[in-house]
Design a protein around this nucleic acid. Structure first.
Length: 293
DNA sequence: CCGCGGGCCTGAGAGC
DNA sequence: TGCTCTCAGGCCCGCG
């Protein structure tokens, strides 16, 4: 599911009900997520207080008073739902608009704030992991991540350097979390269309021979920032699984220019092209071959 | 080291 | 109605 804007939307939904609250009860209905939950998972979380809910790339990082960090990833189909006391809040009794209430609620947190937080993930590509805060920099899942695209470290010079000499296409390079961390299939397609760059172009063409940025690299950086900010503002994109923690839909999918719009006219001003779908490294790419060069 | 393809899972939708 | 096939917002791992 979720790329950076969706994960950030989830973070903003979880923070107000989790920060400062204690885990009164943790129930793992099934622990066989991407990696098995440790046997003592519930025990290690219960009784601790949340001191912060952060995000790094597509990972949620919950700081616990025990000194542990609870890392959570939504995979392709993960979502969180929050219910307050008085609403449907019994573990396993969540009601979804899709009518599959309770199904795939793998981990349920009962908070002292009166909120129940359920992690739902049909495909179970998501994961949860606990490690001591001081191991953060050594955490293998986070170690190799590139800069946050909305942070100061991400700029044309850095992107050019990261793509310098890369023997792959631009689409694959931007999906590579070591280059920049948080983009996924949707927002890469969208950013490339906005910056009029072809996904098939060699990634190394963002840099000069000496590794400094080409002029269009700056445009791409700006487009990535702009599309992510707009999507966050819209509460993310809701295709199948993603909802805000309140159950509300995000609505950025109505602003897609190319993603899942094969055969539709290219929205670029003055462009008469048609959106094409191709497959790159096993994944769909949507783009306009007329204006994206 | 790098880049690529396979695999992990379930469910929705298309086509027959 | 029901079957089969394809595809899906991610990412680790093993191979060459």
């Amino acid at each position: 599911m979720p790329e950076l804007p969706e994960v950030e939307t989830v973070r903003r939904g979880l923070a107000p009900v989790m920060e400062g609250a204690r885990f009164d009860k943790v129930v793992a209905h099934r622990g066989d997520l991407r990696w098995p939950l440790p046997k003592d998972f519930a025990q290690r979380v219960e009784g601790t207080t949340v001191t912060g809910v952060g995000r790094r790339a597509k990972y949620l990082l919950v700081d616990l008073s025990s000194g542990d960090v609870l890392l959570m990833h939504l995979g392709m189909s993960g979502s969180f739902r929050v219910a307050q006391d008085g609403q449907a809040s019994t573990p396993g009794a969540f009601h979804y608009a899709r009518s599959d209430f309770g199904a795939h609620d793998h981990v349920v947190f009962r908070m002292s704030s009166g909120a129940t937080v359920a992690f739902n993930d049909p495909r179970r590509f998501g994961c949860m992991k606990l490690f001591p805060r001081e191991m953060l920099d050594a955490e293998p899942l986070l170690r190799a991540l590139g800069p946050e695209p909305l942070g100061n470290a991400f700029d044309a010079a850095m992107l050019a350097q990261a793509c310098h000499g890369k023997r792959t296409n631009l689409k694959a390079a931007l999906l590579d979390q070591r280059v920049v961390a948080g983009l996924g299939n949707i927002y890469v397609c969208e950013a490339l269309n906005r910056s009029l760059l072809s996904p098939k172009r060699m990634a190394s063409t963002l840099a000069t021979r000496s590794g400094t940025p080409q002029p269009r690299t700056e445009t791409l950086v700006d487009a990535i920032r702009a599309v992510l900010n707009s999507a966050i503002e819209a509460g993310g994109s809701s295709l199948r699984d993603h909802r805000q923690t309140s159950g509300e839909l995000g609505y950025f999918q109505h602003h897609f220019r190319v993603y899942d719009r094969e055969g539709k006219p290219c929205p670029t001003r003055g462009c008469k092209g048609t959106i094409k779908r191709i497959v790159q490294s096993g994944r769909s790419t949507f783009f306009c071959a007329v204006c994206q060069k």
